[in-house]
């Protein structure tokens, strides 16, 4: 996992509530057996006018000029603004894989669905929560300002606009530490293998029916 410390990048606004993971990456692309290559089909149903299938050359498809990410001014965006309950629906990790593969490292929204929120951290994406009123302001500024950028400083837990206005955000300490250092959860957990074995030994006595072969 790639670490994330600071990021200054172009901002794209996705002004819809309850964006579900079926919209972030539709089901036909879940048949892949690898983690990469989902970027061209991120928001597939909204982004293209013709139906997409795995294995197609997505560069030749008809793009939907109405969809926000297709507008020239948002090309190369690294930060996505979203609305309430972003990432609801299925547990598919293909959703953060697609966002990451497209180029997003930071999402800013007033709230997220729980599973998606977790999945982001496991893939080096920082999902920032800011109050709805701040979100309204960021959406308005993004729309009003071509080339609008934000700076994110994870260590300081701040989002700063180009005019210098700054907003603090909360983040769980352990998640912050892992993201700042690009650490793999499994390696960290295996440092506690002794505790896991001790737990199992105790439970095999307390609740042996949980260990039937």
């Amino acid at each position: 996992m790639e670490k994330l410390t600071t990021l200054t990048g172009l901002v794209a606004p996705l002004d819809r509530a309850n964006v579900d993971t079926d919209q972030i990456i539709p089901k036909q692309y879940l048949k892949a057996i690898h983690r990469t290559g989902f970027g061209p089909t991120l928001f597939d149903d909204w982004r293209y006018l013709d139906p997409g299938e795995p294995g197609m050359d997505h560069g030749t498809r008809r793009v939907n000029p109405e969809f926000v990410l297709n507008q020239p001014r948002y090309q190369g965006a690294r930060i996505l603004l979203a609305r309430e309950n972003f990432g609801c629906g299925s547990s598919r990790e293909h959703a953060p894989w697609a966002l990451l593969d497209y180029g997003f490292r930071v999402i800013i929204a007033p709230s997220y669905a729980d599973i998606f929120f977790n999945n982001c951290f496991n893939n080096g994406i920082l999902p920032i929560v800011l109050p709805a009123a701040v979100m309204d302001k960021l959406f308005a500024e993004t729309l009003a300002t071509p080339g609008y950028q934000l700076s994110v400083d994870l260590a300081a837990q701040r989002v700063t606009t180009s005019s210098g206005e700054s907003f603090g955000f909360e983040i769980d300490e352990f998640r912050k530490y892992k993201l700042l250092n690009g650490l793999d959860d499994i390696g960290l957990s295996l440092q506690h293998a002794g505790d896991i074995k001790a737990y199992e030994a105790r439970r095999r006595v307390e609740a042996p029916w949980l260990f039937l072969e």
Partner: peptide, 15 residues
Amino acid sequence: GIGTSEVEHALATQC
């Protein structure tokens, strides 16, 4: 429900 990173985590650590 969990994501794929967590599937791997549960396979590798049972936790």
